[in-house]
Write a protein that binds this DNA or RNA. Structure first.
Lengths: 145, 145
DNA sequence: TTCCTAAAATGGAATAATTACAAATTAGAA
DNA sequence: TTCTAATTTGTAATTATTCCATTTTAGGAA
């Protein structure tokens, strides 16, 4: 888990002012699993009384704009957020709204090689995201949020 | 372009009643490029006076549920729809909301082989969707919607 | 340390997409 | 032709999110 100091340094390094709201949102993002804005608001409200939902949306937008966090789209249409900024993909549960990160450098390499050879006409590819759709094992249920 | 008769047969084959609204929505989906519900409503309103937006949402949900069409999620958060039900992926423009289909059976085969060998612990993979993020060539601009 | 100002947070209202639901209509089987 | 479950309609409600004017604050300069 990242320390408050580490988070503060990250925010500062992105040219942003370090505010309690931003630090707390980052902490909540690390603690929760792909939370929606509302969940972050609930989590952060505890430590920051008087927090406005608008602020949460603002902070999330700004952090995402700086590449510090990622927006994750789900089929339900609600935006979810991800503190992990390293390149990765997502596993989506077909039945629930559970989302998990999926890291696979080997696969990334395969895809990179593939698209290096096979250019797409009229399109400059910059990033590939995989959406792995499926079902998590029942025994894994307890891990879901 | 599919005929009305063909569309009617498709709908019927899915165990649904053939209504003018459903046929018209399917036609609009074939005509438009990844439209949002509102665009479909505008298109279909012409041929079906008194059409309700609710009906468009209903029809889209039901057709998607039967696998006749697909829902396409965009980063803006608005749902878009796709008449093409064959397995394919999507190219997203980073700057605009343009979306295009991407077919690549060779790549699908590579991915299928890869995940046959390399199982994901605790997750039963059922489908892989690629989101290709990038930019369409300027000269291609006219094709955008 | 205090001051200053642009940046950030707040709150309440507005918006946009979508859903809920009860009533009216209709496709298509009998 | 009749009947009924399926479908459509319309209005209201909801939900996530954004807008914007005002207030507050972080952090650099004096």
């Amino acid at each position: 888990m990242k320390t408050i100091q580490h988070i503060a340094r990250e925010i500062s390094a992105s040219g942003l002012k370090v505010t309690p709201q931003r630090v707390a949102v980052m902490q909540a993002l690390h603690k929760l699993n792909h939370p929606r804005a509302e969940e972050i608001f609930n989590e952060v409200s505890g430590s920051i009384p008087g927090l406005s939902p608008t602020t949460v949306y603002n902070v999330l937008d700004i952090l995402a704009g700086k590449g510090m966090i990622k927006k994750v789209k789900t089929d339900s249409g609600v935006m979810r957020y991800d503190a992990v900024s390293d390149h990765h993909h997502h596993m989506y549960c077909i039945d629930t709204d559970r989302v998990e990160d999926f890291f696979d450098p080997e696969l990334d390499m395969i895809l990179q090689n593939y698209f290096q050879k096979k250019k797409i006409e009229g399109f400059k590819l910059e990033d590939i995201k995989l959406q792995l759709m499926g079902k998590f094992d029942e025994s894994e249920k307890s891990k879901s949020i």
